[in-house]
Design a protein around this nucleic acid. Sequence first.
DNA 1: AGATATGCGTCAACATGGTTGACATAAAAA
DNA 2: TTTTTATGTCAACCATGTTGACGCATATCT
Lengths: 187, 187
Amino acid sequence: MVDIKTRANPLFLREEELRQGIELLFYAYRDFTAEPDSMLARLDMGRAHHRVIYFVGRHPGITVTELLRILKITKQSLSRVLGQLIRDAYIEQRQGKVDRRQRLLHLTEKGVQLEHELTANQRARIAKAYKAASAEAVDGYRKVLMGMIDEEDRRRFARPNREEEAEATSPTPAPGLLSRRPVMRRS
Amino acid sequence: MVDIKTRANPLFLREEELRQGIELLFYAYRDFTAEPDSMLARLDMGRAHHRVIYFVGRHPGITVTELLRILKITKQSLSRVLGQLIRDAYIEQRQGKVDRRQRLLHLTEKGVQLEHELTANQRARIAKAYKAASAEAVDGYRKVLMGMIDEEDRRRFARPNREEEAEATSPTPAPGLLSRRPVMRRS
DNA sequence: AGATATGCGTCAACATGGTTGACATAAAAA
DNA sequence: TTTTTATGTCAACCATGTTGACGCATATCT
């Protein structure tokens, strides 16, 4: 009964280390979403709206299907918030030129404005954390989180995403966005 | 129009860097919770139950008030899940010995069991990410997330939490758990 | 050309887990 | 003795997730 959980016990240290890793993620996410949530509440919206606005802003011209793939929710669930955002003119749809079934999503001016306000706090929070840590720490943050996300989404972070406003004028999917084979190969 | 957003534009790089930081957190959290969620669903429970089980397991003898402070939800909301967990014998309450108003929360054997199953996947996921990265990367992960969480909860990660099963036999709060002044100073 | 698959939308019902507000009891602290 | 704290409870409401069933337009396959 000497010192089972102080030193000399790598199993315990590892367990403790892993648990801290879990909790850091919980607390960070909790605090990360708190501010935008309260801003949204004033506009009668919720976190779900934020996510949609964010990713549409991030990927202009994104299709509904791809957005669903990112959010991993059902289309019925998305439909509710997306419908509101379109009605309230934060987002607009444009018919795809190549595939006319697609509704390509874009932020309106109003949407861009709101997106900016919403993420301002989050960007500041990250910037502060980055600044307080070293460049190597930032790199470590990225590496570890990267290792935690499922493979399919990892490629999004390969290189700084180039503009993906392909607007479906060409069948070339945005780099790293659409992970599927290009359409139209006539066998 | 040369190369506004490739090199030579630190503003853009910074923006891109911050956005990636935001998204990494979103994707990681999304994937991190997916598995336990689906396990819970089979037991007719949800993510809220997991959080309660997790933190009660992590802080045996925690009070309801302190648990609320961690989760940052209302007592009515907690009451629902906590009530279920007690009814289903995953958690038990013991009256505080010093302050007899307190209901100190503990996992039962069944609760410990479930907690272990639930976090197994999360621990594995973190372990995998840690292993894939370097020790310095892990340190960076911790540093950056630490910088993102609000000050009041940061102290929890000061040192590996020592056993805090004080069981309120002494008024000394568990180290790093209760961040308030000790009770009982008579003027 | 005809069959099949895909992208998107919609209606309806339901579950989970948040919220607010009001009120009650026991015990500790002032 | 009075006030504050820790906990619990009832009730109503809201946001956001789910499943299942359909429908239409358009693309793709055979």
